[in-house]
Design a protein around this nucleic acid. Structure first.
Length: 264
DNA sequence: AGCGATGTTCGCCG
DNA sequence: TCGGCGAACATCGC
């Protein structure tokens, strides 16, 4: 389930369950999720502890002293802490076994998430060309990042090198709330509108974190619960429309989110 | 039975 | 270089 709010939720989960325990074994059920060589991966982790965590966009960094374990969750990644007496969670790809008899499983149904070990967070962020974390980004940074960008709004929000952490669902919510058409251009947006967009990014993500990434509890005046064919706009009741943009389905209200461009 | 899915990456083209 | 598109990756549920 992972966009920024979900990954933040994973971080808090890991923090409350798995910090400061000696890792006695790393069980690799499926090494396709590893970007590192199996033995190097194990050696970097065994007999160490998860010291602390941090998050940048959709990536979770776990400090192992001196290296970092980096988790990315793809579309279906999850974490599950469980007792060794319990059954191994379904789709467990890698399992970290702790001295206290509990385990942390990194699970993933599909094969899109990745685990790897890196020397520093900075190296990794640089290598992946990640922009600033969406939740920590300042308005100045945001305005700077959009300067000279000609991408349409939907793609700009999804582009992790412009702003890291926003995915398909939350980008729909952010555009809906800002009343921006997904294909509108950001480079000719008035300054007030850019500020509004910026504030809405923060608000939508903060709301997501508060709800612990659980989209099933979203209020009806959000567009997220209505991202289906033949649903209606919770504001004006007009039927929602969608476009496939860069292979992602983008729902919007054709009445509330007018395309600001002159043409079309 | 076929389609779509909370993500990323790569190659192609303009 | 930037931006958009389509494909590829893998698997399940509706």
């Amino acid at each position: 389930m992972p966009e920024l709010p979900e990954v933040e939720t994973f971080k808090r989960y890991l923090d409350t369950t798995s910090l400061k325990q000696v890792i006695t074994k790393v069980k690799i059920n499926d090494n396709r999720v590893l970007n590192s060589n199996d033995n190097f991966f194990k050696k970097s982790i065994i007999n160490k502890q998860f010291e602390s965590t941090s998050r940048h966009g959709k990536h979770l960094f776990v400090y192992l002293k001196p290296k970092f374990l980096i988790m990315h969750f793809g579309m279906t990644g999850d974490l599950e802490y469980y007792s060794k007496n319990d059954e191994e969670p379904k789709y467990s790809k890698v399992i970290f076994q702790f001295e206290n008899g509990f385990n942390l499983a990194y699970t993933s149904l599909r094969m899109f998430g990745r685990l790897e070990v890196a020397e520093t967070i900075e190296d990794f962020v640089e290598k992946k060309k990640l922009g600033p974390d969406a939740f920590k980004m300042s308005l100045d940074e945001f305005q700077g990042a959009l300067r000279h960008r000609t991408a349409i709004a939907k793609n700009a929000l999804l582009n992790q090198s412009i702003i890291a952490g926003i995915g398909n669902l939350y980008s729909d919510e952010i555009l809906f709330r800002t009343k921006l058409h997904p294909k509108s251009k950001l480079d000719d947006l008035e300054e007030e509108k850019v500020k509004e967009l910026f504030v809405n990014i923060k608000d939508v993500l903060r709301f997501g974190i508060e709800k612990e990434g659980d989209l099933s509890v979203y209020p009806k005046n959000f567009i997220i619960p209505h991202r289906k064919k033949e649903e209606h706009c919770p504001i004006c009741n007009k039927e929602l429309n969608y476009l496939d943009i860069s292979g992602r389905r983008s729902f919007f209200c054709p009445n509330c989110q007018k395309d600001s461009r002159q043409s079309v």
